[in-house]
Design a protein around this nucleic acid. Structure first.
Lengths: 190, 190
DNA sequence: AACTCTACTGTCCGATCGGTCAGGAACCGA
DNA sequence: TCGGTTCCTGACCGATCGGACAGTAGAGTT
């Protein structure tokens, strides 16, 4: 029941949309990779856009939850918990995150992408709100963006299994926590 | 002489290839944005692939130079100089870097992209060679990948002029240097 | 005036795109 | 055995893609 054609299509589509881009991935090649015809893809999902929506929906929901839990004001232990949640989100949904980051602008107009863009914007505003200096905002961007990018790059250029790799998770949490700790140290003085 | 149709086309093409993806950007839309017809685009560049090649050529040349100057063994002051060169490269050629990072896999087979991929690979190998621990490799990835991503994201979601912004450059150099300093500190002990 | 070269364009072509539609095969409870 | 539902398919359509090609306007040259 868990491995239906519909879920298989979602998986394949997510990967191709992330790798080749939404425009570059054709319904035919997605169907072929899933062992189906183009017509069958359109049987399960009414349109290419609907397939994209279904493919990124779980990531979007979890992303919204994590962004909502951002501790604008809070102690270092709350911040630590947030970083871990964020890293876990990136690990689990790195393909969807890759789509949001790299195609968020060119796919404007597609509702699910607009919702993701709104979340990113809201996240950025919340962060900028309590991070006054340019240097600290850059640090914030390098920390979170760097973590997101590193996961995609690692998967692209090596063959490590990221989902089950606690060492990588720990290293990411450590690096990002370190960067953000520098921020709260200086931001706390304003 | 500097602002010919050919150079204008290169600029427009670089931006559209980065934003919409190589597959998503059509010769017609590139020509339209440059005030020319699709036929004129193909007059100046024999094919879409040739246009891509011409658009990223300067970035690729400089990238090769910078990667070649990577100080596998060297003091902290050499490392500092390398970081500054790298950040300047990202600032100047961030659109091309964006293409290399995000479309390097899907555009395999195009010579100029293969050359860029080889450089990235060579860069990664050189780094991994003298960075033994997983934690430090992650730190390395977050530092350089995060810097590259942050520039593109900043340009995407804000309207700052990055080329002339010394504050951002300084913040990036500082952040990346800090991360890499942690690496040389621990890597020196092996 | 005739010629040449450069920059540019409109038209046409085959391939591929997303999407529609009619229908086939397997299984269903009645 | 039958009608209904689910899953899947090939054939087809209009649009758009990258690219080929013939031709034109204009500036120089002789």
């Amino acid at each position: 029941m868990a491995n239906t054609s519909a879920t298989q299509l979602r998986r394949v589509a997510l990967e191709q949309f992330a790798r080749t881009g939404f425009a570059g991935a054709s319904l035919g090649s997605i169907g072929e990779a899933a062992g189906l015809s183009k017509s069958s893809v359109l049987y399960h999902y009414a349109s290419k856009e609907a397939l994209l929506t279904a493919a990124v929906a779980p990531a979007l929901a979890e992303f919204a939850e994590v962004v909502g839990s951002y501790p604008a004001s809070g102690g270092p232990e709350e911040r630590q918990r947030f970083v871990e949640r964020f890293i876990d989100l990136l690990l689990e949904h790195r393909l969807a995150v890759h789509i949001f980051i790299n195609q968020g602008q060119s796919l404007k107009g597609i509702p699910v992408i607009d919702r993701a863009n709104a979340l990113v914007h809201q996240f950025g505003e919340a962060a900028v709100d309590h991070i006054p200096s340019v240097a600290d905002r850059i640090r914030f961007g390098v920390a979170l963006g760097g973590a997101a990018y590193t996961l995609v790059a690692t998967e692209t250029w090596s063959d490590l299994d990221l989902t089950e790799n606690d060492e990588i998770r720990a290293a990411l949490v450590d690096t990002v926590s370190g960067l953000l700790a520098d921020i709260s140290a200086t931001a706390g003085t304003h």
